[in-house]
């Protein structure tokens, strides 16, 4: 791979953290981003689990990229990813049962996280093992950081607390200040805005962050963040363009039947008259 040899390993690692952040720039994997960012602890747990799956699946898919026929590559990728997710699921169940309870169905749903399948399709299936692993590490860190950032905003304003824990070890903001059952916001004579940790807060904070990133990006002449996971657009000829998992499918426009066209034309004439 001549092209791959030219790639700079450091850039492959760092691009996922800021420039191509999977959550805030590429807009992949929205479901866990919105669902589990109600506490920092959950965000870190989810980030680590997804990162491990991402790195391992990137390595395996990259190693098998010349063996997998391109026609059945997506099912093959899914099998590899699902195998690793099942392993992580069992490990979390055994060693971090509280995290398993907190993440609930979102843990098995890492299988359908667009980031992992998207990176497999867009990167690991075209590049060498080392580069794919670095890409996985970078994207995983970027995903975790974005989750933690969102969780900090939501948890702090929503409950006046921050659970700074990794796998059950660590502390929380209320413990740190010795506030007991109270929270930081009430200590400052303010009330927590509960809606931030409820469902609407997720959408709102995510929108706010993307708007901020867009604002910063515009100064550097970058394009706005665009949904890359499951998007439907129309191109110039009126064909539907589906974007899913890092690949683009163009659906030719469905021809309207002559009868409908005639009715439409008559309608237009009537309107003009």
């Amino acid at each position: 791979m001549a092209e791959a040899a030219k790639r700079n390993p450091v850039k492959e690692l760092t691009k996922g953290i800021v420039k191509d952040n999977p959550v805030l720039r590429l807009v992949l994997g929205c479901c866990p981003t919105l669902a589990i960012t109600t506490s920092v602890e959950n965000a870190i747990g989810m980030g680590i689990a997804a990162t491990i799956v991402l790195i391992l699946s990137n390595i395996v898919i990259s190693a098998l990229r010349k063996v997998i026929p391109s026609r059945v590559r997506i099912p093959c990728f899914i099998v590899v990813i699902a195998a690793f997710v099942s392993m992580i699921q069992l490990l979390v169940k055994a060693f971090a049962p509280s995290l398993d309870a907190a993440l609930g169905i979102y843990l098995p749903l890492i299988v359908v996280n667009c980031i992992i399948l998207g990176r497999a399709e867009a990167f690991a299936s075209k590049n060498g093992i080392a580069l794919s692993a670095l890409d996985g590490v970078g994207m995983g860190i970027g995903f975790t950081l974005a989750l933690v950032l969102m969780a900090i905003i939501r948890e702090f304003f929503g409950s006046g607390n921050l659970t700074l824990k990794v796998l059950g070890f660590g502390t929380s903001l209320t413990d740190l200040f010795g506030l007991g059952d109270s929270n930081v916001l009430s200590a400052l004579h303010m009330d927590p805005i509960i809606i931030f940790i409820l469902a609407p807060g997720g959408f709102f904070v995510y929108g706010l962050l993307i708007a901020l990133i867009n604002l910063l990006g515009r100064h550097q002449g970058k394009k706005d963040a665009e949904l890359n996971c499951c998007n439907v657009m129309e191109d110039a000829e009126g064909n539907l363009v589906l974007v899913a998992d890092g690949k683009t499918i163009v659906m030719p426009k469905v021809e309207t039947t002559p009868q409908i066209k005639k009715v439409e034309a008559e309608g237009k004439e009537a309107a003009e008259a």
């Binding site: 609407p200 807060g201 997720g202 867009n214 515009r218 706005d224 963040a225 665009e226």
Partner: peptide
Amino acid sequence: PKFWQGLPITLVAAALITC
């Protein structure tokens, strides 16, 4: 507003509908 166009405003609308 310019930088709210597209995805951000869609998410805020989704937040309201969730409310």
